[in-house]
């Protein structure tokens, strides 16, 4: 094989994937970027000129500030609760015996096979004025009228945590596989209690898994559309649903595009910053 040919082969082999990647991801993103710098006239539609007014609007209007802040807080809380639920879940799953281990793992990860829309609809049924929660509370006499978690921050949060917790379990599960169970025994033999083993031996070793899991969950929560749209609706907008409304209801495509671009950039900044911070903190221990 000639030198030229051997240099070309990897490119030819990865060509089809590269092409579809470029066509389906890079091009639409570039078009969104270009679109975000266009102006919009309510009567005339998108104008073919270069302006930064959309960005100025996004950065100065308190209405958008509130939406961005809400999105950030909700994503951070979702990641937080996913850690709280997903870490013990993964640990317990990992210690189960066959066949229970397999059955429960399937039960945990199975929902990933079902559409987010379906899973969120389930919550809508539970949260509604005539839903299970409302009926139960009224039956117990805790409230006079119907109670609804629909269109509330709590409702969106519960549904998001439920939808995203499998990603946390997967991520922690992966780092638990690398954990040498003998280190737990070693600590026990040295006199550590079960709680100390958990806190001093297990948790520090699965920290990379928890960190990457929380990055995944945060990113997915910040960009989630279906769940906030169905539970939060118009009354509780997040960035993704706002951008959608700008595109489809106000028909202000440039403003929607600039919202999307700002969300993307903020997400990248937050995630890389978070990664950098923890990588530096743990590099001593986990580089290999």
């Amino acid at each position: 094989m000639s030198d030229l040919q051997s240099k070309r082969t990897p490119w030819l082999l990865s060509g089809p994937a590269l092409l579809s990647y470029a066509l389906l991801l890079v091009v639409p993103m570039l078009m969104t970027l270009v679109l975000s710098f266009r102006s919009f006239e309510p009567m005339l539609g998108v104008q073919d000129e270069f302006v930064v007014s959309n960005y100025i609007e996004v950065f100065t209007d308190p209405y958008f500030h509130e939406i961005f802040l809400r999105t950030f807080v909700m994503s951070a809380l979702t990641a937080f609760f996913c850690v709280l639920i997903g870490v013990p879940e993964a640990y317990i799953l990992n210690r189960m015996r066959a066949p229970w281990k397999g059955i429960f793992l399937l039960m945990t990860l199975g929902p990933l096979l079902i559409s987010v829309v379906v899973r969120t609809l389930g919550w809508a049924v539970i949260f509604g004025r005539e839903g299970v929660i409302s009926e139960t509370i009224q039956f117990l006499g805790l409230s006079d009228g119907p109670v609804s978690l629909m269109y509330t921050q709590t409702g969106v949060l519960i549904a998001l945590v439920h939808v995203l917790v499998p990603f946390m379990v997967l991520s922690v599960w992966a780092s638990l596989q690398r954990l040498d169970p003998e280190t737990e025994r070693a600590a026990i033999s040295l006199g550590a209690s079960q709680f100390t083993v958990m806190r001093r031996i297990v948790l520090p070793q699965i920290t990379p898994g928890i960190l990457s899991g929380s990055v995944i969950v945060f990113a997915l929560a910040a960009t989630a559309f279906a769940t906030p749209a169905m539970i939060g609706g118009r009354r509780l907008k997040v960035v993704a649903t706002t951008a959608y409304d700008e595109f489809l209801h106000s028909l202000n495509w440039p403003l929607g595009a600039s919202l999307a671009v700002v969300l993307l950039i903020l997400n990248i900044v937050i995630i890389t910053g978070y990664n950098r911070f923890f990588e530096r903190k743990y590099s001593q221990v986990f580089e290999s």
Binding site: E182, T183, S189, G191, I201, P204, T207
Partner: peptide
């Protein structure tokens, strides 16, 4: 086992990596 006060050297050492 935590109360027996024995020193154990494991086959793969089981050192705490962190």
């Amino acid at each position: 086992p935590s109360e027996r006060g024995l020193g154990i050297v494991f086959q793969k050492y089981a050192l705490f990596p962190h």
